[in-house]
Design a protein around this nucleic acid. Structure first.
Lengths: 397, 397
DNA sequence: CTAAATTAATTTAAGTTTAAAATTAATAGC
DNA sequence: GCTATTAATTTTAAACTTAAATTAATTTAG
């Protein structure tokens, strides 16, 4: 139960450096004076830390604030070209690789289509490695400028000395993805569940901005959630937290593709909805079919809204979040047409106290932000302030 | 998003002091040498901090470890008589007030029975104040020695400048309990939901010891849960997190006493079980009736186990905890007879990955530990290391 | 156009804190 | 009683933050 917090006077410095960098990153153009207010650090400390960071080229001066008498304040910002980050989305239908600067402007992108059922590990690894090379080449980025690669994958990521992926839908059982990739690249790797990376993208740049307690639900073929408590993704003891799709909302209900009965996913997942409507569309036109169904409304959609209301209400009762963001292609489809009804269903199934304070909104970044979110995993590391030059790791003490 | 962590070198000292105190409190008799290992602080820092704490009488030396050559190590411990704490349990049937030393040995106790429906705020306030005086008098404790009063109440505690209690079962709507009590006592007050205080008692001294991610479920007439993430109670944005009893496990199911339909509480709460068995026992012999029913088994109990399995599995899928503790009188009753079946039901309804790592156990402290847990709220404050003398608050800077 | 006023930012000085090294303390074994 | 050994404290040096003093960069008044 020993909390390993800052202990030495040196850790203190590191911590303050990280706080300043993080604040500046999210605030954008900011003056030293404002930073002092935002971080709680004294002007002198701000001066110290910023001059270090400027010397290291991590932050740069970027213009002046007009003054009406007195020395004008200098605007600071994180140097967007200090380094670059790569994000990878390993999805059911494609592998997407994108390269960003630190402002998260996309510099290059590479995409590979996966045919249904074609989820061989070797193939995916090859796509990722090829994609990394391709985005660096097409944007003219030197590998030394890339601070790391974030990868969003389906299923449960068991973190440990060697990350293991358990992805039922891919037929992956304890796949040591990082070990396999390390044979083809020496860039630092950060692997996480794709729903969680999408959620982090929404938290940083989308509908979740500024909130500390957020749940991002992802509704597509599968159903998942990412739980953000105190501004950080909650992972639980094995990083498998957030398996909302397989919570049960009916005892002995519909059989889910996971084998169990009564799973939420069997009712509000895209396949579950279509099946309940008596449609058995193949993968290819699943999205078009659902769009049609949602547009025409009808009892199956109303029923789906009730189930979704129950599922969201359960999250609200358990977590008492300040915001719920609905994402994923099927979730966005439903939300765009039926948000009012969804909110009504949630209200009927949740306690009034927590319902009063939660706001339910749609994701703003679309379903393709998994790669963006994956790239933020690298930025998160960068914001800890320990990276002194893009690839050179901090000296071991 | 600015994380207000340790900033000055003085905060560092405070933090290290708190880490040392907390470590020593939970480790019990410990030497300086061991503390160095447990906290990560250097021997010199341990020496500094401990000599401060000894001078303030917060910790004391307590014997020597036998040595086989060399200076023997001195054992240290928190001074159990540095101050005392009071815990209050405001339950459906009684108000209990207990006084403890810092080792949580009960020094005195006072109890008042509440008749069914007799939950008038004035009456409860009077009981609490009378109880506080009574336990101080009967144990000969000077008010100056009491560091604070922790109070566990039913319902949702809305924390703010003035804590407001929303307790449906008591008919309390936004009751400003702390303001009312402050008219009768000047002791520092700490108010929290009773299920959460019980959970903290189990976490510190019962089945939850040593775990960082724990969920304590409380099954009595009502049903609730307390979620502990990273060793701390998770409260959400309004402190209402953990309302497990009113999560829905059936769309359009049984009507719950909260008015909604399909709540877990309507199936596994004591009243829900008895009603489903066709029994409508009054409050008085509810416990005896349920004990009889559980002992004889039968389809209603098996059904209850299924519902409980679903409810627990949902928690496991969402939170990925390392431990689940079942508490509350009805929960203990069910668990003592049917733990094996419960585990089986959980296994059938949860994903294998998180199920593999969770252990499900019964609470060890019995249902009466709410007051003990409430008292730990005060101790938690004490362990932050800012209380320099029992009642004297730390100097305002 | 210059000097005063004003505000920003840096430098300096003082005070904490921790870690490492040196010292002192306490015990067992001979 | 002396030495070896281990524990704990004290001393010293280095690092860091804050407050105060100083320097820098503007605008405005005259």
């Amino acid at each position: 139960m020993a909390t390993p917090e800052r202990r030495t006077v040196r850790d203190l410095r590191r911590g303050n450096r990280a706080v300043l960098l993080r604040t500046l990153y999210f605030a954008g153009l900011t003056t030293r004076h404002e930073l002092s207010g935002l971080t709680g650090l004294s002007a002198a400390s701000i001066s110290n830390v910023t001059s270090d960071l400027i010397a290291e080229n991590i932050i740069v001066e970027a213009g002046l604030v007009e003054s009406d008498g007195g020395r004008p304040r200098v605007l600071l910002r994180v140097n967007p070209n200090f380094g670059h980050v790569i994000g990878v989305d390993v999805g059911e239908t494609h592998v997407q690789v994108a390269l960003f600067d630190l402002d998260m402007n996309e510099q290059a992108k590479s995409e590979f289509t996966l045919r249904p059922g074609e989820h061989d590990v070797e193939l995916v690894v090859r796509h990722i490695l090829t994609g990394i090379d391709a985005v660096m080449a097409s944007s003219g980025t030197d590998p030394a400028q890339v601070m790391g690669v974030g990868i969003g994958v389906p299923g449960i990521v068991e973190s440990g000395p060697e990350a293991l992926i358990h992805a039922q839908t891919f037929g992956w059982d304890a796949v040591p993805l990082s070990a396999l990739l390390r044979e083809g690249t020496s860039l630092p790797l950060y692997i996480d569940n794709g729903a969680k990376t999408l959620a982090q993208a929404e938290l940083w740049f989308g509908s979740g901005r500024g909130s500390r307690h957020v749940i991002v639900v992802l509704i597509g073929s599968g159903v998942g959630a990412s739980i953000i408590t105190d501004g950080r993704t909650y992972r639980g003891v094995n990083s498998s937290a957030g398996e909302w799709g397989h919570t049960k909302i009916a005892v002995a209900g519909r059989t889910c593709r996971c084998g169990a009965r009564g799973c939420l996913e069997a009712y509000i997942g895209a396949e579950g909805i279509l099946e309940r409507a008596g449609m058995t569309a193949e993968m290819a036109n699943e999205q078009a079919a659902l769009a049609e169904l949602v547009k025409s409304g009808g009892p199956v959609i109303n029923e789906t809204i009730d189930y979704l209301g129950v599922g969201l209400a359960n999250l609200i009762n358990l977590f008492n979040p300040e915001r719920i963001v609905i994402g994923g292609w099927a979730g966005l489809l439903l939300g765009q047409h039926e948000l009012v009804k969804i909110k009504k269903a949630v209200a009927e199934n949740s306690l009034s106290q927590p319902y009063k304070t939660v706001s339910i909104t749609l994701g703003r970044l679309g379903p393709d932000a998994v790669a963006l979110g994956a790239a933020t995993l690298v930025v998160e590391e960068f914001l800890l302030g320990e990276i002194f030059s893009p690839t050179q790791q901090p000296a071991v003490i």
